[in-house]
Design a protein around this nucleic acid. Sequence first.
DNA 1: TTCTCTTGGCTTACTTAGTAATCCTACGGG
DNA 2: CCCGTAGGATTACTAAGTAAGCCAAGAGAA
Lengths: 220, 220
Amino acid sequence: MKSETGSNSSARAPLSQERVLHAAVAVADQGGLESLTMRRLGEHLGVEAMSLYKHVASKDQILDGIIDIVVGEIDLPSPGTHWKTAMRQRANSARRVLTGHPWAIGMLESRNAMGPAALRYTDAVIGSLRGGGFSIELAAHAFWLLDSYIYGFVVQELSLPFPTDEKSASRATAETLPLDEYPHLVEMATEHVTSPDQYAIEFEFGLDLILDGLEKHRDG
Amino acid sequence: MKSETGSNSSARAPLSQERVLHAAVAVADQGGLESLTMRRLGEHLGVEAMSLYKHVASKDQILDGIIDIVVGEIDLPSPGTHWKTAMRQRANSARRVLTGHPWAIGMLESRNAMGPAALRYTDAVIGSLRGGGFSIELAAHAFWLLDSYIYGFVVQELSLPFPTDEKSASRATAETLPLDEYPHLVEMATEHVTSPDQYAIEFEFGLDLILDGLEKHRDG
DNA sequence: TTCTCTTGGCTTACTTAGTAATCCTACGGG
DNA sequence: CCCGTAGGATTACTAAGTAAGCCAAGAGAA
Protein backbone atom coordinates (compact mmCIF):
# COMPACT_ATOMS: atom_id res chain seq x y z
CA MET A 1 0.00 0.00 0.00
CA LYS A 2 3.01 2.28 0.33
CA SER A 3 4.37 1.78 -3.14
CA GLU A 4 4.48 5.52 -3.72
CA THR A 5 8.23 5.59 -4.07
CA GLY A 6 9.72 8.13 -6.37
CA SER A 7 7.94 9.60 -9.34
CA ASN A 8 4.92 7.38 -9.27
CA SER A 9 2.28 8.53 -11.71
CA SER A 10 -0.39 8.47 -9.00
CA ALA A 11 1.44 10.95 -6.80
CA ARG A 12 -1.36 13.00 -5.42
CA ALA A 13 -1.83 16.52 -6.64
CA PRO A 14 -0.18 18.99 -4.30
CA LEU A 15 -2.39 20.72 -1.80
CA SER A 16 -3.13 24.40 -1.97
CA GLN A 17 -5.38 26.74 -0.10
CA GLU A 18 -7.79 26.67 -2.98
CA ARG A 19 -8.00 22.90 -3.08
CA VAL A 20 -8.48 22.79 0.68
CA LEU A 21 -11.31 25.30 0.59
CA HIS A 22 -13.12 23.64 -2.29
CA ALA A 23 -12.81 20.28 -0.59
CA ALA A 24 -14.25 21.87 2.53
CA VAL A 25 -17.26 23.03 0.56
CA ALA A 26 -17.71 19.54 -0.79
CA VAL A 27 -17.52 17.96 2.65
CA ALA A 28 -19.97 20.46 4.11
CA ASP A 29 -22.32 19.93 1.18
CA GLN A 30 -22.54 16.22 1.66
CA GLY A 31 -22.44 15.96 5.42
CA GLY A 32 -23.44 19.32 6.81
CA LEU A 33 -21.36 21.84 8.67
CA GLU A 34 -20.84 19.71 11.73
CA SER A 35 -19.32 16.99 9.62
CA LEU A 36 -16.64 19.38 8.46
CA THR A 37 -13.75 18.50 10.74
CA MET A 38 -10.10 18.87 10.01
CA ARG A 39 -9.56 15.14 10.11
CA ARG A 40 -12.41 14.38 7.77
CA LEU A 41 -11.31 17.13 5.45
CA GLY A 42 -7.81 15.71 5.42
CA GLU A 43 -9.19 12.27 4.72
CA HIS A 44 -11.16 13.68 1.83
CA LEU A 45 -7.92 15.01 0.37
CA GLY A 46 -5.89 11.91 1.15
CA VAL A 47 -3.84 13.73 3.72
CA GLU A 48 -3.47 13.96 7.47
CA ALA A 49 -5.38 16.66 9.31
CA MET A 50 -2.31 18.55 10.42
CA SER A 51 -1.04 18.87 6.88
CA LEU A 52 -3.89 21.22 6.14
CA TYR A 53 -2.34 23.75 8.45
CA LYS A 54 0.45 24.22 5.97
CA HIS A 55 -2.12 25.89 3.74
CA VAL A 56 -4.67 27.48 6.04
CA ALA A 57 -4.13 29.19 9.35
CA SER A 58 -7.07 27.73 11.22
CA LYS A 59 -10.44 26.19 10.81
CA ASP A 60 -11.94 29.62 11.21
CA GLN A 61 -10.13 30.76 8.13
CA ILE A 62 -11.58 27.79 6.28
CA LEU A 63 -15.04 28.80 7.38
CA ASP A 64 -14.52 32.35 6.16
CA GLY A 65 -13.15 30.98 2.94
CA ILE A 66 -15.99 28.64 2.10
CA ILE A 67 -18.57 31.35 2.69
CA ASP A 68 -16.88 33.51 0.17
CA ILE A 69 -16.78 30.61 -2.26
CA VAL A 70 -20.52 30.22 -1.91
CA VAL A 71 -21.15 33.92 -2.33
CA GLY A 72 -18.98 33.75 -5.40
CA GLU A 73 -21.39 31.28 -6.96
CA ILE A 74 -24.18 33.82 -7.02
CA ASP A 75 -24.69 35.30 -10.47
CA LEU A 76 -23.84 38.95 -10.61
CA PRO A 77 -26.19 41.25 -12.48
CA SER A 78 -24.72 41.80 -15.91
CA PRO A 79 -24.07 45.49 -16.47
CA GLY A 80 -26.54 46.16 -19.25
CA THR A 81 -29.64 44.65 -17.70
CA HIS A 82 -32.62 46.64 -16.50
CA TRP A 83 -32.43 46.92 -12.74
CA LYS A 84 -35.64 45.05 -12.12
CA THR A 85 -34.61 42.11 -14.25
CA ALA A 86 -31.16 42.18 -12.74
CA MET A 87 -32.51 42.13 -9.20
CA ARG A 88 -34.88 39.32 -10.01
CA GLN A 89 -32.11 37.28 -11.53
CA ARG A 90 -29.68 37.75 -8.72
CA ALA A 91 -32.38 37.07 -6.13
CA ASN A 92 -33.24 33.80 -7.76
CA SER A 93 -29.62 32.92 -8.18
CA ALA A 94 -28.86 33.71 -4.55
CA ARG A 95 -31.76 31.60 -3.37
CA ARG A 96 -30.68 28.72 -5.56
CA VAL A 97 -27.09 28.91 -4.36
CA LEU A 98 -27.96 29.26 -0.70
CA THR A 99 -30.43 26.41 -0.66
CA GLY A 100 -27.84 24.36 -2.52
CA HIS A 101 -25.40 24.87 0.35
CA PRO A 102 -27.77 24.73 3.30
CA TRP A 103 -24.98 25.10 5.82
CA ALA A 104 -23.98 28.49 4.44
CA ILE A 105 -26.83 30.68 5.55
CA GLY A 106 -26.26 29.91 9.20
CA MET A 107 -22.73 31.20 9.01
CA LEU A 108 -23.53 34.57 7.52
CA GLU A 109 -24.34 36.16 10.84
CA SER A 110 -21.48 34.80 12.86
CA ARG A 111 -18.61 35.67 10.55
CA ASN A 112 -18.64 39.29 9.54
CA ALA A 113 -15.56 39.50 7.39
CA MET A 114 -16.60 40.17 3.81
CA GLY A 115 -14.40 38.25 1.43
CA PRO A 116 -13.58 39.43 -2.07
CA ALA A 117 -16.59 37.68 -3.59
CA ALA A 118 -18.92 39.30 -1.09
CA LEU A 119 -17.45 42.69 -1.85
CA ARG A 120 -17.77 42.14 -5.57
CA TYR A 121 -21.34 40.98 -5.12
CA THR A 122 -22.34 43.96 -3.02
CA ASP A 123 -20.66 46.35 -5.36
CA ALA A 124 -22.34 44.88 -8.42
CA VAL A 125 -25.79 45.00 -6.87
CA ILE A 126 -25.46 48.58 -5.75
CA GLY A 127 -24.02 49.45 -9.14
CA SER A 128 -26.99 47.97 -10.90
CA LEU A 129 -29.39 49.96 -8.78
CA ARG A 130 -27.48 53.20 -9.22
CA GLY A 131 -27.42 52.56 -12.93
CA GLY A 132 -31.16 52.06 -12.82
CA GLY A 133 -31.64 55.58 -11.54
CA PHE A 134 -31.73 54.95 -7.80
CA SER A 135 -30.37 57.62 -5.49
CA ILE A 136 -27.72 56.58 -3.04
CA GLU A 137 -30.21 56.55 -0.22
CA LEU A 138 -32.78 54.55 -2.14
CA ALA A 139 -30.16 52.14 -3.43
CA ALA A 140 -29.09 51.48 0.15
CA HIS A 141 -32.69 50.90 1.15
CA ALA A 142 -33.26 48.61 -1.80
CA PHE A 143 -30.15 46.61 -1.12
CA TRP A 144 -31.04 46.08 2.52
CA LEU A 145 -34.59 45.19 1.73
CA LEU A 146 -33.85 42.75 -1.04
CA ASP A 147 -31.03 41.03 0.77
CA SER A 148 -33.01 40.79 3.95
CA TYR A 149 -35.81 39.14 2.05
CA ILE A 150 -33.56 36.69 0.29
CA TYR A 151 -31.65 35.67 3.39
CA GLY A 152 -34.72 35.42 5.55
CA PHE A 153 -36.62 33.46 2.96
CA VAL A 154 -33.86 30.92 2.66
CA VAL A 155 -33.58 30.66 6.43
CA GLN A 156 -37.24 29.81 6.64
CA GLU A 157 -37.21 27.53 3.64
CA LEU A 158 -34.39 25.53 5.12
CA SER A 159 -35.79 25.43 8.62
CA LEU A 160 -39.09 23.98 7.53
CA PRO A 161 -39.17 20.22 7.25
CA PHE A 162 -41.39 19.91 4.20
CA PRO A 163 -39.07 19.34 1.28
CA THR A 164 -36.77 16.68 2.67
CA ASP A 165 -39.11 14.69 4.81
CA GLU A 166 -42.61 14.29 3.53
CA LYS A 167 -44.12 12.32 6.37
CA SER A 168 -42.55 14.25 9.21
CA ALA A 169 -44.34 17.30 7.90
CA SER A 170 -47.78 15.78 7.96
CA ARG A 171 -47.09 14.19 11.28
CA ALA A 172 -45.93 17.45 12.79
CA THR A 173 -48.96 19.34 11.57
CA ALA A 174 -51.59 16.68 11.91
CA GLU A 175 -50.78 14.31 14.73
CA THR A 176 -48.35 15.75 17.19
CA LEU A 177 -50.05 19.10 17.55
CA PRO A 178 -52.76 19.73 20.10
CA LEU A 179 -55.11 20.73 17.36
CA ASP A 180 -57.43 23.13 19.08
CA GLU A 181 -54.70 25.22 20.62
CA TYR A 182 -53.52 26.51 17.28
CA PRO A 183 -56.64 26.95 15.17
CA HIS A 184 -55.11 29.22 12.57
CA LEU A 185 -52.10 27.02 12.10
CA VAL A 186 -54.34 24.05 11.58
CA GLU A 187 -56.55 25.94 9.17
CA MET A 188 -53.56 26.91 7.12
CA ALA A 189 -52.04 23.47 7.22
CA THR A 190 -55.22 21.88 5.97
CA GLU A 191 -56.41 24.39 3.40
CA HIS A 192 -53.17 25.75 2.06
CA VAL A 193 -51.74 23.43 -0.56
CA THR A 194 -48.08 22.71 -0.36
CA SER A 195 -46.78 21.59 -3.69
CA PRO A 196 -43.14 20.85 -4.36
CA ASP A 197 -42.50 24.18 -6.01
CA GLN A 198 -44.54 26.10 -3.49
CA TYR A 199 -41.37 27.76 -2.30
CA ALA A 200 -40.63 29.17 -5.72
CA ILE A 201 -44.13 30.62 -5.95
CA GLU A 202 -43.90 32.00 -2.45
CA PHE A 203 -40.55 33.54 -3.23
CA GLU A 204 -41.84 35.18 -6.39
CA PHE A 205 -44.74 36.77 -4.58
CA GLY A 206 -42.60 38.62 -2.10
CA LEU A 207 -40.00 39.48 -4.68
CA ASP A 208 -42.58 41.05 -6.98
CA LEU A 209 -44.14 42.96 -4.16
CA ILE A 210 -40.81 44.36 -3.11
CA LEU A 211 -39.66 45.23 -6.62
CA ASP A 212 -42.93 46.99 -7.37
CA GLY A 213 -42.68 48.93 -4.16
CA LEU A 214 -39.14 49.97 -4.92
CA GLU A 215 -40.10 51.07 -8.40
CA LYS A 216 -42.80 53.27 -6.97
CA HIS A 217 -40.32 54.85 -4.58
CA ARG A 218 -37.89 55.49 -7.38
CA ASP A 219 -40.49 57.18 -9.52
CA GLY A 220 -42.35 59.03 -6.81
CA MET B 1 -15.66 24.46 52.16
CA LYS B 2 -17.85 21.41 52.50
CA SER B 3 -19.76 22.62 55.54
CA GLU B 4 -23.07 21.93 53.82
CA THR B 5 -24.05 19.28 56.34
CA GLY B 6 -27.70 19.01 57.09
CA SER B 7 -30.24 21.78 56.66
CA ASN B 8 -27.88 24.60 55.89
CA SER B 9 -29.70 27.75 54.89
CA SER B 10 -27.55 28.22 51.82
CA ALA B 11 -28.54 24.93 50.25
CA ARG B 12 -28.75 25.78 46.58
CA ALA B 13 -32.09 25.88 44.89
CA PRO B 14 -32.85 22.58 43.20
CA LEU B 15 -32.22 22.36 39.49
CA SER B 16 -35.01 21.97 37.00
CA GLN B 17 -35.24 21.91 33.25
CA GLU B 18 -36.53 25.45 33.32
CA ARG B 19 -33.65 26.74 35.41
CA VAL B 20 -31.16 24.96 33.18
CA LEU B 21 -32.62 26.45 30.03
CA HIS B 22 -32.80 29.96 31.37
CA ALA B 23 -29.23 29.70 32.61
CA ALA B 24 -28.26 28.53 29.14
CA VAL B 25 -29.81 31.65 27.65
CA ALA B 26 -27.88 33.76 30.11
CA VAL B 27 -24.59 32.06 29.30
CA ALA B 28 -25.15 32.39 25.56
CA ASP B 29 -26.13 36.03 25.97
CA GLN B 30 -22.96 36.96 27.72
CA GLY B 31 -20.46 34.79 25.93
CA GLY B 32 -21.98 33.78 22.63
CA LEU B 33 -23.14 30.39 21.48
CA GLU B 34 -19.70 28.84 21.40
CA SER B 35 -19.22 29.67 25.05
CA LEU B 36 -22.25 27.61 25.96
CA THR B 37 -20.70 24.34 27.04
CA MET B 38 -22.12 21.87 29.46
CA ARG B 39 -19.29 22.46 31.89
CA ARG B 40 -19.62 26.21 31.83
CA LEU B 41 -23.36 25.93 32.13
CA GLY B 42 -22.93 23.71 35.16
CA GLU B 43 -20.48 26.15 36.65
CA HIS B 44 -22.98 28.95 36.14
CA LEU B 45 -25.48 26.94 38.16
CA GLY B 46 -23.01 25.82 40.82
CA VAL B 47 -23.19 22.24 39.65
CA GLU B 48 -21.13 19.71 37.75
CA ALA B 49 -21.71 19.31 34.04
CA MET B 50 -23.06 15.79 34.29
CA SER B 51 -25.70 16.81 36.77
CA LEU B 52 -27.43 18.73 34.03
CA TYR B 53 -28.24 15.48 32.31
CA LYS B 54 -30.64 14.65 35.09
CA HIS B 55 -32.83 17.44 33.73
CA VAL B 56 -32.14 17.58 30.01
CA ALA B 57 -31.51 14.76 27.60
CA SER B 58 -28.70 16.34 25.63
CA LYS B 59 -27.15 19.58 24.64
CA ASP B 60 -29.25 19.51 21.51
CA GLN B 61 -32.36 19.62 23.62
CA ILE B 62 -30.95 22.64 25.40
CA LEU B 63 -30.42 24.35 22.07
CA ASP B 64 -33.97 23.63 21.01
CA GLY B 65 -35.17 24.87 24.35
CA ILE B 66 -33.38 28.18 24.38
CA ILE B 67 -34.60 29.02 20.89
CA ASP B 68 -38.12 28.57 22.04
CA ILE B 69 -37.43 30.75 25.06
CA VAL B 70 -36.23 33.50 22.77
CA VAL B 71 -39.20 33.15 20.45
CA GLY B 72 -41.38 33.34 23.53
CA GLU B 73 -40.01 36.77 24.28
CA ILE B 74 -41.47 38.21 21.10
CA ASP B 75 -44.65 40.16 21.77
CA LEU B 76 -47.69 38.53 20.24
CA PRO B 77 -50.17 40.74 18.43
CA SER B 78 -52.98 41.49 20.84
CA PRO B 79 -56.26 40.23 19.39
CA GLY B 80 -58.03 43.53 18.93
CA THR B 81 -55.35 45.44 17.07
CA HIS B 82 -55.56 46.44 13.43
CA TRP B 83 -53.49 44.01 11.39
CA LYS B 84 -51.09 46.65 10.16
CA THR B 85 -50.37 47.93 13.63
CA ALA B 86 -50.11 44.41 14.93
CA MET B 87 -47.63 43.40 12.25
CA ARG B 88 -45.56 46.48 12.83
CA GLN B 89 -45.45 45.85 16.55
CA ARG B 90 -44.50 42.23 16.30
CA ALA B 91 -41.89 42.97 13.64
CA ASN B 92 -40.24 45.52 15.86
CA SER B 93 -40.51 43.25 18.84
CA ALA B 94 -39.00 40.37 16.94
CA ARG B 95 -36.13 42.49 15.73
CA ARG B 96 -35.48 43.77 19.24
CA VAL B 97 -35.54 40.29 20.73
CA LEU B 98 -33.38 38.71 18.05
CA THR B 99 -30.74 41.40 18.15
CA GLY B 100 -30.79 41.10 21.93
CA HIS B 101 -29.85 37.43 21.64
CA PRO B 102 -27.47 37.56 18.70
CA TRP B 103 -26.73 33.87 18.88
CA ALA B 104 -30.34 32.94 18.26
CA ILE B 105 -30.80 33.83 14.62
CA GLY B 106 -28.07 31.50 13.50
CA MET B 107 -29.83 28.56 15.07
CA LEU B 108 -33.16 29.08 13.39
CA GLU B 109 -32.16 27.30 10.22
CA SER B 110 -30.40 24.34 11.73
CA ARG B 111 -33.04 23.25 14.22
CA ASN B 112 -36.42 22.85 12.66
CA ALA B 113 -38.39 21.65 15.64
CA MET B 114 -40.80 24.59 16.45
CA GLY B 115 -41.39 24.55 20.17
CA PRO B 116 -44.63 25.64 21.82
CA ALA B 117 -43.69 29.31 21.77
CA ALA B 118 -42.93 29.18 18.08
CA LEU B 119 -46.27 27.51 17.41
CA ARG B 120 -48.08 30.08 19.50
CA TYR B 121 -46.28 32.87 17.72
CA THR B 122 -47.06 31.56 14.26
CA ASP B 123 -50.66 30.94 15.15
CA ALA B 124 -51.12 34.43 16.56
CA VAL B 125 -49.61 36.11 13.53
CA ILE B 126 -51.71 34.18 11.08
CA GLY B 127 -54.74 34.79 13.25
CA SER B 128 -54.15 38.52 13.20
CA LEU B 129 -53.92 38.52 9.43
CA ARG B 130 -57.01 36.39 8.98
CA GLY B 131 -58.85 38.69 11.34
CA GLY B 132 -57.70 41.61 9.24
CA GLY B 133 -59.48 40.22 6.23
CA PHE B 134 -56.69 38.29 4.56
CA SER B 135 -57.52 35.15 2.64
CA ILE B 136 -55.70 32.01 3.62
CA GLU B 137 -53.48 32.29 0.60
CA LEU B 138 -52.66 35.91 1.15
CA ALA B 139 -52.11 35.37 4.86
CA ALA B 140 -49.59 32.69 4.01
CA HIS B 141 -47.86 34.99 1.59
CA ALA B 142 -47.84 37.81 4.11
CA PHE B 143 -46.47 35.62 6.84
CA TRP B 144 -43.65 34.36 4.68
CA LEU B 145 -42.80 37.77 3.39
CA LEU B 146 -42.79 39.51 6.74
CA ASP B 147 -40.90 36.81 8.54
CA SER B 148 -38.36 36.54 5.77
CA TYR B 149 -37.77 40.24 5.98
CA ILE B 150 -37.41 40.25 9.74
CA TYR B 151 -35.04 37.30 9.89
CA GLY B 152 -32.95 38.46 6.99
CA PHE B 153 -32.73 41.98 8.30
CA VAL B 154 -31.48 40.78 11.65
CA VAL B 155 -28.99 38.47 10.00
CA GLN B 156 -27.53 41.38 8.10
CA GLU B 157 -27.67 43.74 11.02
CA LEU B 158 -25.73 41.31 13.16
CA SER B 159 -23.24 40.39 10.50
CA LEU B 160 -22.21 43.97 9.91
CA PRO B 161 -19.54 45.29 12.22
CA PHE B 162 -20.81 48.83 12.64
CA PRO B 163 -22.61 48.88 15.95
CA THR B 164 -20.12 47.09 18.17
CA ASP B 165 -16.87 48.24 16.74
CA GLU B 166 -16.72 51.77 15.46
CA LYS B 167 -13.18 51.84 14.16
CA SER B 168 -13.14 48.45 12.55
CA ALA B 169 -15.94 49.68 10.32
CA SER B 170 -14.10 52.67 9.02
CA ARG B 171 -10.94 50.66 8.63
CA ALA B 172 -12.71 48.01 6.65
CA THR B 173 -14.34 50.46 4.33
CA ALA B 174 -11.61 53.04 4.05
CA GLU B 175 -8.21 51.45 4.45
CA THR B 176 -8.26 47.74 3.83
CA LEU B 177 -10.25 47.91 0.63
CA PRO B 178 -8.67 48.32 -2.76
CA LEU B 179 -10.68 51.42 -3.33
CA ASP B 180 -11.04 51.51 -7.07
CA GLU B 181 -12.16 47.93 -7.43
CA TYR B 182 -15.45 48.58 -5.70
CA PRO B 183 -16.52 52.06 -6.76
CA HIS B 184 -20.17 51.74 -5.78
CA LEU B 185 -19.31 50.35 -2.39
CA VAL B 186 -16.96 53.21 -1.79
CA GLU B 187 -19.49 55.74 -2.96
CA MET B 188 -22.07 54.37 -0.61
CA ALA B 189 -19.65 54.15 2.29
CA THR B 190 -18.63 57.75 1.90
CA GLU B 191 -21.92 59.41 1.05
CA HIS B 192 -24.40 57.34 2.96
CA VAL B 193 -24.54 58.46 6.56
CA THR B 194 -24.52 55.77 9.17
CA SER B 195 -25.97 57.04 12.39
CA PRO B 196 -26.44 54.85 15.44
CA ASP B 197 -30.14 54.31 14.78
CA GLN B 198 -29.67 53.88 11.07
CA TYR B 199 -30.77 50.31 11.44
CA ALA B 200 -34.10 51.31 12.89
CA ILE B 201 -34.72 53.68 10.00
CA GLU B 202 -33.63 51.08 7.49
CA PHE B 203 -35.91 48.53 9.09
CA GLU B 204 -38.88 50.88 9.00
CA PHE B 205 -38.42 51.59 5.33
CA GLY B 206 -38.70 47.98 4.27
CA LEU B 207 -41.42 47.25 6.74
CA ASP B 208 -43.59 50.09 5.46
CA LEU B 209 -43.01 49.10 1.87
CA ILE B 210 -44.03 45.55 2.59
CA LEU B 211 -47.07 46.45 4.65
CA ASP B 212 -48.30 48.87 2.00
CA GLY B 213 -47.82 46.28 -0.67
CA LEU B 214 -49.72 43.70 1.32
CA GLU B 215 -52.56 46.14 1.92
CA LYS B 216 -52.85 46.73 -1.78
CA HIS B 217 -53.05 43.01 -2.41
CA ARG B 218 -55.69 42.60 0.23
CA ASP B 219 -57.85 45.34 -1.25
CA GLY B 220 -57.34 44.66 -4.92
C1' DT C 1 -37.28 2.85 64.39
C1' DT C 2 -35.12 0.69 60.49
C1' DC C 3 -34.85 -0.74 55.84
C1' DT C 4 -35.25 0.35 51.24
C1' DC C 5 -36.24 3.06 47.02
C1' DT C 6 -35.84 7.08 44.52
C1' DT C 7 -34.15 11.55 43.43
C1' DG C 8 -30.54 14.46 42.25
C1' DG C 9 -26.36 15.25 42.59
C1' DC C 10 -20.86 13.79 41.78
C1' DT C 11 -16.74 11.10 39.68
C1' DT C 12 -14.46 8.79 36.21
C1' DA C 13 -13.45 7.92 31.80
C1' DC C 14 -14.11 7.44 26.76
C1' DT C 15 -14.52 9.70 22.15
C1' DT C 16 -13.96 13.33 18.97
C1' DA C 17 -12.52 17.97 18.05
C1' DG C 18 -8.75 21.74 17.08
C1' DT C 19 -4.17 22.50 16.94
C1' DA C 20 0.92 23.23 18.98
C1' DA C 21 5.36 21.13 18.50
C1' DT C 22 8.22 18.35 16.27
C1' DC C 23 10.04 15.39 12.91
C1' DC C 24 10.98 13.49 8.23
C1' DT C 25 11.99 13.47 3.39
C1' DA C 26 12.58 14.70 -1.28
C1' DC C 27 14.03 18.37 -4.18
C1' DG C 28 16.46 22.40 -5.98
C1' DG C 29 20.15 25.70 -5.96
C1' DG C 30 24.92 26.80 -4.31
C1' DC D 1 27.77 16.92 -3.04
C1' DC D 2 25.42 19.52 0.62
C1' DC D 3 21.96 21.79 2.82
C1' DG D 4 17.84 24.63 3.37
C1' DT D 5 13.19 24.48 2.71
C1' DA D 6 8.51 23.13 1.42
C1' DG D 7 5.12 20.09 2.32
C1' DG D 8 3.91 16.39 4.31
C1' DA D 9 3.35 12.84 8.87
C1' DT D 10 3.43 11.87 14.09
C1' DT D 11 2.57 12.72 18.66
C1' DA D 12 0.32 14.70 22.13
C1' DC D 13 -2.29 18.29 24.68
C1' DT D 14 -6.75 20.51 25.75
C1' DA D 15 -11.67 21.09 25.64
C1' DA D 16 -16.07 19.32 24.64
C1' DG D 17 -20.25 15.90 24.91
C1' DT D 18 -21.75 12.26 27.36
C1' DA D 19 -22.04 7.01 28.99
C1' DA D 20 -21.66 4.46 33.31
C1' DG D 21 -21.79 4.07 37.69
C1' DC D 22 -21.30 5.90 42.65
C1' DC D 23 -23.31 8.06 46.73
C1' DA D 24 -26.07 10.87 50.09
C1' DA D 25 -30.38 12.40 51.82
C1' DG D 26 -35.17 12.21 52.26
C1' DA D 27 -39.78 9.48 51.87
C1' DG D 28 -42.49 5.84 52.78
C1' DA D 29 -43.47 1.00 54.26
C1' DA D 30 -42.69 -2.84 57.63
